[in-house]
């Protein structure tokens, strides 16, 4: 019940945030509180996420970690099918359906990414992109501790995405919980890897991540062909 309310609230916020943003412009009305959240996130990354990632890399062989991220990607591909359909991108939908069928059927439930070896590209569509395709602007930028950068639009999409996962349907509870755990640790590891580069490159990590995130999402909504950005002066 709570989840539905949260989705409804965010959807309202998204509609209200309406035309406040122009593409290419940063819209961060909550910058002060976002920065506070970012500051909270820093020690969590350093003292919780990093040790977890290091432990994960130390105790698992690389093929195992690849299998876990393949499993995650396979579920993403499943949701991509839905979003391909919502955007009427039938070519992508065909690819994603083929991917999920091949990887689930022949790749042990998505553990092996056979489809990529067959050069079937990933659609990589999600609910946030679908909203963007439909014309919803990003709305305010948000930084959520542990979760990372998002916006009202993308965050709404992520909540929709979290409502259900095929993992939920695994009848064996211990197995299911181990999978939940591995998926989470794998995602933590990805975040820690990405942060290494940001640590090296950024003068101010907050602005760096914000712009990189918004550029990346814009690029994805336009399937790699975003309209040219206007200079800010």
């Amino acid at each position: 019940m709570k989840r539905t309310c949260a989705v409804a609230a965010l959807a309202c916020a998204m509609l209200l945030s309406g035309c406040a943003t122009a593409p290419g412009k940063i819209y961060d009305p909550f910058e002060a509180s976002n920065r506070a959240m970012f500051a909270i996130n820093e020690p969590i990354m350093e003292y919780v996420a990093k040790p977890i990632a290091q432990f994960y890399v130390a105790v698992t062989p690389s093929f195992f970690r690849t299998a876990v991220s393949n499993y995650v990607n396979n579920i993403d591909d499943l949701f991509s099918i839905v979003n391909d359909a919502l955007q009427g991108k039938w070519d992508k939908m065909g690819n994603d359906m083929a991917r999920v069928m091949i990887n689930t059927g022949f790749g042990f439930g998505g553990l092996i990414d056979i489809a990529s070896d067959l050069s079937i590209p990933r659609g990589e569509e999600d609910f946030g992109q679908t909203f963007g395709y439909w014309g919803f602007p990003q709305g305010p930028y948000l930084f959520i501790p542990v979760w990372g950068p998002t916006t009202v639009r993308d965050g709404t999409g992520s909540i929709l995405r979290l409502l259900w996962s095929p993992t939920n349907e695994i009848p064996n509870v211990p197995v299911r919980n181990v999978i939940y755990g591995l998926v989470t640790v794998s995602e933590i590891n990805d975040a820690v890897e990405a942060m290494k580069l940001v640590d090296q490159a950024a003068l101010d990590k907050y602005t760096f991540i914000r712009r990189a995130y918004l550029q990346r999402r814009e690029y994805m909504v336009y399937d790699g062909k975003p309209p040219p950005e206007k200079d800010e002066d």
Partner: peptide, 30 residues
């Protein structure tokens, strides 16, 4: 890289440093 332009990303960073203390502040931060 994956839609993220190096120049655009650093433009925000540079702007912010310059806003907080001019070009010299940016040089100092770098």
């Amino acid at each position: 890289v994956g839609g993220v332009s190096l120049v655009t990303n650093y433009r925000d960073e540079f702007n912010e440093q310059i806003k907080n203390g001019g070009v010299d502040n940016l040089i100092k931060t770098l």
